[in-house]
Design a protein around this nucleic acid. Structure first.
Lengths: 121, 121
DNA sequence: CCGAGTCGTTTACATCTGTAATCGATGTAT
DNA sequence: ATACATCGATTACAGATGTAAACGACTCGG
């Protein structure tokens, strides 16, 4: 377990986290915007299955794919890695960076504020 | 410009952002904890120079290496990528994830709070 | 001058990643 | 039955990455 998920693979997982189970066809259809061919999507599905990130159920001659890992857990792990690598583990500089580049909308700020208030209890 | 910097390369950059210019030997010495051989470090330095992430100055028969890119800029870009990829561009969920896993110290929370207060102006 | 050390460069090589084409088996429409 | 569509599996292949050995040029202590 705990194999890393690549960026392309992540997009496949997104589809399945949103809705599952799905056939390879369905996944590919939902990845239309990427422009990937059907075989490309199948390769990604196979790799993900091989690394245990999703489960397959036989449905006649084909598979139905579903996530086998929790999105939140992976996201938390990746976040942690980035914050460790770029900011010595301290998250505030990350937020500061996003802020400096005007990447935070008022809504984002409000959301953060609410979150902080909650954390302080 | 804007070539990505890999994780191993990042560690080399960290050394040079902390202190520069340095020789390959010096960089390797400071990367002692990684256990990398001298040639490995040299390879990474070459690749970084090739992608314009650092500058070289001849010093007799060897080079002195120094960063050619701004750490903050790269960190901001990488942060942005991660937040886009994992959280649809919204940073609050990221902070929430870190918080949920008890990754935020009281100091971190205080720091974020101050930052938010500042952003609200 | 000569051997040992030190430089950057070249070459190596396995793994991962992105992006498929091709293949053999099977289902399906005619 | 036969051709065609579709499935997953196998194979492909270039570029990035981690990790380094080997190489040729140069310098320095004797």
């Amino acid at each position: 377990m705990s194999e890393r998920i690549s960026e392309a693979e992540w997009q496949v997982m997104e589809v399945l986290w949103t809705q599952h189970p799905l056939t390879a066809q369905d996944v590919a259809a939902r990845l239309q915007p990427t422009g990937w061919g059907l075989t490309t999507v199948k390769t990604l599905l196979s790799r993900l299955a091989a690394k245990g990130a999703l489960t397959t159920t036989e449905d006649g001659r084909r598979y139905l794919y579903a996530p086998a890992v929790d999105r939140a857990a992976i996201a938390a792990g990746e976040s942690r890695r980035l914050v460790d690598r770029l900011f010595g583990g301290r998250p505030a500089p990350l937020v500061a960076h996003l802020a400096e580049r005007g990447e935070l909308s008022p809504a984002d700020i409000a959301e953060l504020e609410a979150l902080i208030r909650e954390l302080k209890q």
